[in-house]
Structure formats: C-alpha cells, structure tokens
Design a protein around this nucleic acid. Structure first.
Length: 301
DNA sequence: ACCTGGTATACCGTGTCTCG
DNA sequence: CGAGACACGGTATACCAGGT
C-alpha cells in the first residue's frame, strides 16, 4: 500500500544511507607503467623541455628557445590528462586555469610568463625532491569527484529493475516534451529554474513518478542551493493524483538532519520539506532506503 | 585582537547531451 | 561526428555575527 510522502521522508531519516557507496567509486589509474606508456613518455618529455627552457633562460641563450616553447605548447594542448602535471597545477597559484589557457588563440605570451615563473619559483625546489608520477595520480584522484555526475544512473537502474522489474526512462531534451505532453502536466519548476528538466521517469501500475536526483555529502553554499532545488521540485502540484514528483537525495547530506543540534539552515530545510509534503502528499523526498521502501510499497499496492 | 561556525558566491574540470 | 551547452559535486574564499 502506497503511503503519503511524509512517511517516506521520515523513513529515510530513520534509515540513513550506508557510506561509502560503491556505485560512486571512480578508481582509475592514469600512470600505469604498462598501459599509460605513451602518456608517461609525454610527461617526461614535457619535464625535459621545461628543464631545457629554464637552462637556456638562465644563461641568456635565445637560440632555439621558440622551438622549445612550441613543443611545450603542443604537448599541453594535445595530451589528455596533462593538466595533472606539476607544471599545470602551479598555474592555479598564478590565477591561470588550464581551461582558460586552452581557449586562448595566442597561447605563446602567457606560456612564456608561466614558464618563467615556474623556473623561478618551483623548478629547483622540485628537483631537490625529485619528480615523481605519484603527484600526477594524486592530483587526478583529488579531483575524481568531478566524474561522479552520471554515476547515479546505474544505481537507480539497478534498484528499479530489482524491485519493479521495469525500465527507468532518463530524461533528456528529446523525450521530455513527449512525456510532459502525455502526462498533461504544467511542470512549474522549469519556469522558475531556467527550463531545467527532470532526471528520470518511472511508470508502474498507472503511477507516474517524475524524479530529480542529487548526490550530496557536505554542507556549503552550493550544496544548500542544490537541496533548495530538490525542495522546490516537490512544491509542484498537478491535477492528476497519480503523477508524483520525487526528489532523491543521495549521499551523506541527510545525516545532517538527525544531529542532536540542528543548524538553523538544516532546521529550515527540514521544516520546509515536511510542510511541502503535507500540502502535496503525493510527492516524495527520499534517500536510497526510502526510495527502495517506496518502490516495494508500490509493487505491493 | 583573534577564533569559530554559518552562509553565500564564484569557480573548477568532467561527462553527457544536443544540434547542426 | 564534432563543437558547444549544460549539469554535476566539490572547493576556495569573502563576509558576518557572536564569543573569548
């Protein structure tokens, strides 16, 4: 028997998700001595070229320096993952981003500045410690969260297949128009959020679930804004009671809701969710376990 | 004078989707 | 099929209020 939204929210708070979640692991090695041979050759090549540049510069030799710069530029623009080398990492200290560099039509002048700075401030220090490809892997690992954006799909696919034995439709610009038309819904959320479309759509026994999912662990401005979006999403109400808006919050964020001393922000968010679910009992705000419970009830309805 | 916790803003690089 | 747009989670940091 399918219950009201507030039930599944409270169920989620009582049954917090486990951590860490294997669906979101992204363990990729980019400095494998065998598989990454070409990449590592390019990295060594870059380091040699930079050393050469610094030596020529130190001795005021201009002969051949332009050729060295263009070879360095060639490596920087064409080799994937080259942004994880210590040279490119240093740019951030100088207010220069790799992406910005790639967009420049004339990279030469900036590259000279960056090389001169690196020679002056980093090269001898790094040579004292010795260059290592550990730093490249470490920089990549440090940024691995950025590749988790789409990991959610396989997770929800598995959950829905296991319980309902039905497919999840992932929404894109192409199929959204049709779904919206078919359901004959207003979808106010889009009007207030730059036409942002939902993430997924599930149909089962004449129940239509339109879902928005986010994977959030920590608190912070950007994260709060994301939670605010999830709350806005379930504020929507349609004429048809079998259309459900569902906000799926994955990750550790919900753990903040059950601390002894709730911060003011979290208190407000919790209250908002509860009030919205009272007004719209057909909508849902759940974590993984709350979502599973919901699907099980839907199946046994 | 300095610390602490909370909020808000801007930004990063990645992966996927869209559209010509 | 390739370029561009977009959404993603996380980070850095400015600012503020309140406490010590």
């Amino acid at each position: 028997m399918l219950k009201d939204g507030i039930f599944y929210f409270e169920y989620s708070l009582k049954n917090l998700d486990d951590f860490p979640d294997s669906y979101y692991t992204n363990d990729v090695i980019i400095v494998d001595p065998k598989k990454s041979k070409k990449f590592l050759e390019k990295v060594n090549n870059l380091r040699e070229l930079i050393t050469t540049y610094c030596c020529l510069k130190n001795n005021n030799i201009n002969n051949g320096i332009d050729e060295i710069i263009s070879k360095i530029e060639e490596i920087l623009v064409s080799v994937k993952n080259i942004n994880y080398t210590e040279f490119v990492a240093y740019w951030k200290s100088l207010d220069v981003q790799y992406g910005t560099f790639l967009e420049l039509s004339n990279k030469n002048n900036l590259l000279k500045i960056l090389l001169d700075k690196f020679c002056e401030r980093r090269r001898s220090l790094y040579e004292k410690f010795g260059y290592t490809n550990v730093s490249i892997q470490a920089l990549y690992d440090s940024g691995s969260s950025r590749s988790k954006g789409s990991k959610f799909k396989s997770k929800i696919l598995d959950i829905v297949r296991n319980i309902l034995n039905t497919k999840v439709i992932f929404i894109g610009k192409n199929n959204w128009k049709e779904i919206k038309k078919e359901l004959n819904i207003k979808y106010d959320f889009g009007r207030n959020h730059q036409n942002k479309i939902p993430d997924f759509y599930i149909v089962y026994n004449n129940h239509h679930i339109v879902g928005e999912a986010k994977h959030i662990h920590n608190k912070g401005g950007a994260q709060d804004k994301q939670v605010g979006e999830l709350i806005d999403f379930i504020k929507q109400k349609e004429k048809y009671k079998n259309v459900h808006y569902l906000s799926f919050i994955d990750g550790l964020y919900l753990h903040h809701f059950v601390h002894k001393n709730l911060s003011e922000k979290i208190k407000r968010q919790k209250k908002d969710i509860e009030e919205v679910l009272k007004i719209n009992p057909n909508n849902f705000f759940v974590n993984t376990k709350g979502f599973i419970k919901l699907l099980e009830d839907l199946k046994n309805a």
